[in-house]
């Protein structure tokens, strides 16, 4: 199943849409680790490439078109500065681990090594938490961010047999219809 940029735009509704001036949620504003100077965080393109590399791990193999889907999704997500700070910091931490433990950036590691890296940081064993431990933040800003984008989209839902998943404004027809 091929993902497209258009699918990414639709998926954004489930995570709060694009950046909106004046929209501030107190709890969300507290998201993101403190103490990380903004200038030390990776730029957008670096974040996108790393997230694409991780998506290739956490998305099922029958999905294609990951790069344009993730890049389009992040184009908007990284405009939300409060949230973007957490994403950038988590990607930076992951890159730091990749360099230390595997001798190169995430994007240059094999798929198997990328998965090993995620497991080494324990992103698979913790619950998500935007201000928690490294593993919990990795789960929140990287793994679950990507999984939410996929499975709250029509294409991701269809993989499971649900073309109008929660968070997707798919109308009021599909619930009336029987299985395809």
């Amino acid at each position: 199943m091929e993902l497209t940029r258009r699918d990414a735009v639709a998926a954004l509704t489930a995570v709060g849409g694009v950046a909106t001036a004046g929209v501030g949620l107190s709890r969300l504003q507290s998201e993101g680790p403190s103490g990380d100077p903004e200038e030390s965080l990776p730029p957008d393109q670096h974040v996108k490439e790393s997230m694409v590399a991780i998506a290739e791990v956490v998305y099922p193999t029958e999905v294609s078109g990951i790069e344009p889907f993730v890049e389009e999704f992040l184009d908007s997500r990284l405009e939300r500065e409060d949230h973007a700070r957490g994403v950038r910091a988590s990607v930076a931490e992951l890159e730091d681990r990749a360099e230390s433990w595997h001798g190169g950036p995430v994007t240059e590691l094999s798929r198997e090594t990328r998965e090993q890296l995620l497991r080494e940081v324990s992103a698979h064993t913790v619950d998500e938490h935007p201000t928690g431990t490294t593993a919990e933040r990795m789960r929140y800003y990287v793994v679950n961010e990507l999984l939410l984008a996929l499975y709250a989209s029509t294409k991701g839902g269809k993989l499971v047999g649900l073309e109008n998943p929660q968070g997707h404004p798919g109308g009021t027809e599909s619930y009336q219809q029987g299985p395809p």
């Binding site: 489930a14 791990v57 956490v58 998305y59 099922p60 193999t61 029958e62 998965e115 995620l118 698979h124 064993t125 619950d127 998500e128 793994v143 679950n144 999984l147 939410l148 996929l150 499975y151 709250a152 991701g156 839902g157 993989l159 499971v160 047999g161 649900l162 998943p165 929660q166 968070g167």
Partner: peptide
């Protein structure tokens, strides 16, 4: 709900999709 289910658990990739398909529907 599959999307909520996807955000919990200790799996991803094909294993996660297999679990979602088993648990939903």
């Amino acid at each position: 709900s599959p999307v909520e289910l996807a955000l919990t658990g200790d799996d991803w990739g094909d294993d996660l999709l297999e679990r979602l398909r088993a648990d939903y529907g």
